[in-house]
């Protein structure tokens, strides 16, 4: 399962709208606990595939290293990545699978239809090696923080999305 605050969930979807008709990409920082990838922060990354940005993305290793350092300083880990599929479903592609190497991490995909974010799905890269890796549908639990006003009981509302195949 992927657990993410609403503000981060909306931010990664908005990123896909901003870069349309190109793919956006970014990194999810947080902690992995008891099989749940908890997102604490998202970091936008540049898509270096300027030759084919409408259907490809790549994060420069140098940028990834900087993000990993940032995570380390904050006491966080890289727990996943996100990107968008302009005018295509929010489903992993053969290219996504071939290029996925971060086993145990969440791969979040948002479909953007004519510049509007439609569906967001998450897939866990499961397995132990390159030979037995596989994508598994992963539910997304969205945490919505409530106002902390004295007359309102503090707490959170959680929405769980189970693999929308759209």
């Amino acid at each position: 399962m992927l657990h993410i605050e609403y503000v981060h969930y909306e931010a990664l979807r908005a990123h896909g709208e901003e870069t349309y008709p190109h793919e956006c990409c970014g990194v999810l920082l947080g902690r992995s606990l008891a099989g749940v990838n908890h997102v604490r922060e998202i970091v936008r990354a540049g898509n270096t595939r300027t030759d084919s940005a409408h259907n490809r993305y790549n994060i420069a290793p140098q940028e990834l290293i900087k993000i990993q350092r940032q995570a380390r300083t904050a006491g966080l880990d890289i727990v996943g990545f996100y990107h968008s599929h302009p005018d295509h479903p929010a489903q992993w592609s053969t290219t996504d699978f071939a290029e996925a190497h971060w086993i145990g991490c969440s791969y979040v995909i948002t479909s953007t239809d004519h510049g509007r974010a439609i569906t967001t799905n998450s897939f866990l890269l499961a397995g132990t090696t390159e030979e037995d890796k596989r994508f598994e549908d992963e539910s997304i639990e969205i945490e919505i923080a409530q106002p902390q006003a004295s007359e309102i009981q503090p707490g959170v509302t959680e929405i769980t999305i189970h693999g929308d195949p759209a």
Binding site: E23, C25, V27, R49, S52, N55, R56, Y57, N58, I59, P61, L64, I65, Q68, F81, H83, H85, P86, H88, W92, S93, T95, D96, E99, A100, H101, W102, Y107
Partner: peptide, 13 residues
Amino acid sequence: LTIIPSIAGGCCL
């Protein structure tokens, strides 16, 4: 020394 697997992909052919 930092070991960093690549991250890439894309929606279709």
